[in-house]
Design a protein around this nucleic acid. Structure first.
Lengths: 110, 110
DNA sequence: TGACATACATAGAATATCTATGTATACTAT
DNA sequence: ATAGTATACATAGATATTCTATGTATGTCA
């Protein structure tokens, strides 16, 4: 009925990369795991965003072979990416606080 | 740079109306006030959403004159609107928890 | 009476995310 | 060996959401 959207995609991706370098597919599975399946980001969302982050200099890509021999494209967060993450985190907290303030207000009246 | 979007518009509007009947313009100012200016919903966002909520039967509109004599269009939340609000609230909590879980995870590693 | 805030409304642009699709590799079970 | 499935990256086009811009009209105050 209503889509469960991820509008803070940048925040989530940068947050994942702040912990360790990851490749695209891994980000999708990790995000699902860490959110207990609340988030199921699609490839069609992730890859364009990832390329955008790279163009902005927030992440850097490098190729590396898995043990299987298969090539994977890993992403690493940059210094400026960490700055962006800090900002996004802050703005998430502001947003979260604002929603909860509105909810509490009505609850208080009910 | 990046828009501070309100994607949980339904939740916020229904939440306002759960406290008291309101007219459109009032919702905008109240939302700003209660969120300490984090939210500044635009008319172009509000009115279409309001009409949609009405069509879905979640709110009902009625005309009423202000003391000034001016006509205003008030909205009242319906029974099914309260049901919708409860669902939206729940899904906001799930979403909020999931974002924070992802953030905490990375913070724990840093 | 002119400026400004209030009040409702819609069209069109911009943005974000999803669906669908394509390609290719590695693993697993028959 | 080979068919099916999971992995892995990618893009085009559709859909959804919100904003910008604009229009109309009323009430208030200097």
């Amino acid at each position: 009925m209503k889509k469960q959207s991820i509008e803070h995609t940048h925040l989530l991706i940068l947050s994942l990369l702040a912990g360790e370098d990851m490749y695209g597919y891994q980000m999708i599975t990790e995000l699902a795991r860490r959110s207990q399946n609340v988030f199921s980001m699609k490839e069609g969302t992730l890859y364009p965003v990832l390329h955008g982050l790279e163009k902005q200099g927030y992440v850097e890509a490098y190729q590396q072979a898995a043990e299987s021999g298969r090539m994977r494209k890993y992403y690493r967060i940059t210094r400026s990416g960490r700055g962006c993450l800090a900002e996004e985190k802050q703005s998430w907290e502001v947003y979260e606080g604002a929603v909860n303030a509105v909810l509490r207000f009505s609850a208080g009246l009910a």
